[in-house]
Structures are given as structure tokens and as C-alpha cells.
Simulated scan of single mutants.
Amino acid sequence: MKLQHTLGGLQNLGPVNVETQVFVEPWEKRIFGIHTAMMAESTHLSGALPQYPVAGLPTTFRNTWTWASLRTGAEGMQPFEYFKYRYYEKWLMGISQFFIDEGYLSADELNQKIDYYRANPGAPLPNQPNPAIATQIHEYLTKGDSPLRGLTQAPRFAQGDEVRVADPDAVDHTRLPGYLRNKPGKVDLVYPGAFSYFVSTGPDGIGDPMPVYRVSVDAAEIWGKEKSEPNTTIYADLFEAYLQPSN
């Protein structure tokens, strides 16, 4: 598994960042807005339960972009490069590389823009208001794109069942926290309905809609008794593919 997914319990990674501000620098708000606009224009919305007019949007963006796309780009970084940069710096690099890879602009064009704004920090940024896209973004933020779906079969586990978290092969993107792999736990809650993810994770197990469970794990099972506060329980929402019977 990738190092940046196994931070729980690892030593010598330096002090914990206790920054409480969501956006530390003004540009971070802008990159969050770009990411949100990309999701609201993403082609995957054509299959969402809300009836989004994706085909008729006045945009040249014709790709799928979801949270999975953002995370896959960040997780593809060399682990120690990953630790070097701030949170939204990783967003910026992932989104920039996506636009280059998909041919929306070249690396040279991006570098020219960077050089221009470094030399002219007060220059106005592009501003092309688009009411249709603004409406789409508002609708997307209100209605979302991951609807609850009906189950095709009963959940494999019930509340109170003893389980063990799976340890599947590492893939490009996972929703399984590394520190929970192969740990024993108990099903605390079975969420109603079934849930899917934006992309299939292949050998990792996420694809078709499936049950999701809230699983409780004794903190001492994760970090050891000597490094855990007494009577501390960790709760995690896990797809059914990530759970196995305890025996």
C-alpha cells in the first residue's frame, strides 16, 4: 500500500499540523472553486439521479472529474513529494497536470501564464461570467451526484457481527484507510440502502453499489495498548468489500 495511506501510528513524520483555517491563502479558495466547477461540468453527471443538462452546458470541458479524480492524482505522487506540499498545493498540481494530459493546454502555455503573473502580480485574473454554469454549480452543490440506491441482495453482515478489515492489493486509489487493514472490529451500524463510488477500484473491490457499514475498532488494536488511551474506540464507514468474517 502507498505510504501516504498508512499514516496512523507511523513515527518520525514530524509534528501534527493543527492549522484550523480551511483556507490559509486567498488562492486556495480559487483552486477549490475550480475543482467544484469541474465537478459540476463533469460528464459523469449525465448518469446522476438529478436531471442535469450536461450535454447542453456552454462549456468546452468534456471530461469526467470527481473527488476520485482529484485523489487519484494526489495519490500518484511520489510519497515524500506528497508530504512536502500543502493540501491545496497538491490539488493545484493534480488539476494542472490533468488539463495538460487532456490537451486543454500545454505545459509551455501554463509556464507562460505562470511567468506572466509572477512578473505582474496585480494583473486581473480571467473573468468570464457564465450564468448557465453558475446555475449548474449551485444545483450540483445542492443536489449532489451520489444518490442512495436500492440493494440487489441483503447485507452480508448485521449489527453486532465481529469482522476483520480486509487487506486487498494496493491500487491507484482506495477508500480503505491503511491503518485499518487486517484489524478486528465490530459492525456498529448497517446503513440502509446501497452505495457506489465514482470509479471502480478494480482489485480493491469498489464498483457496483453495495452495503456500507459503520465499524468500531478498539484503538489498542490499531496503535497498541501502550500508545492508546484506555477505552478509546475508532469508528469508520467501510464498504462491504473491505470487510471479512472474523473467523
Results as ranks from 00 to 15, higher is better:
L92A: 15
D108P: 00
T152K: 11
E162I: 02
T64H: 02
I137P: 00
K186D: 01
P177W: 01
T6Y: 04
M93T: 13
L141C: 11
N111D: 13
M93V: 14
V190F: 07
D204N: 14
E75Q: 12
D115F: 05
V16P: 01
H138V: 14
G47H: 06
Y52W: 05
V212D: 00
F80V: 13
R175K: 08
S46V: 12
F195W: 11
Y52V: 08
R30F: 05
A37D: 12
A154K: 12
A119E: 08
L10Y: 02
D167F: 12
R156W: 01
P230C: 02
I34D: 05
E221N: 14
V22D: 06
G9H: 03
N17C: 10
R214F: 00
P26G: 04
W67M: 08
G56M: 03
N63T: 02
R175G: 07
K225L: 07
V16A: 12
Y242M: 11
K225V: 09
L243D: 01
W27V: 12
G160Q: 05
R164A: 06
T64K: 06
I31M: 09
L243R: 00
K2A: 09
N63I: 07
D172T: 07
G178A: 12
Q78L: 11
A40K: 04
E102N: 14
G193Y: 05
P26W: 01
S69W: 00
A158L: 08
N120F: 08
P121F: 00
I206T: 06
Y88F: 15
S106V: 03
D108L: 11
Y197R: 13
I222M: 02
Q159S: 07
A236D: 07
V24H: 06
A219M: 15
Y179N: 10
A107T: 04
Q4T: 12
L13E: 04
P53M: 02
L70T: 13
R149Y: 04
V22W: 08
P15C: 10
A158W: 01
P147N: 06
F239G: 09
G160W: 03
A55V: 02
D167N: 15
G47E: 09
E89T: 12
Y87S: 11
A236H: 10
P131K: 09
W27Q: 06
P26L: 03
G193A: 03
E19T: 15
A134E: 15
S69E: 09
Y87I: 12
D101P: 05
L151P: 01
I34C: 11
G14V: 02
F23L: 13
W65Y: 15
W223P: 00
N63V: 06
V171G: 05
Y197D: 12
Y213W: 10
E102D: 12
T142I: 06
G224F: 05
G14K: 05
L92P: 01
A119R: 09
L45G: 03
V171T: 15
Q153V: 11
A107K: 11
A132F: 06
P126N: 14
V18R: 10
G33V: 10
P192G: 09
L45Q: 07
N182S: 15
A74I: 14
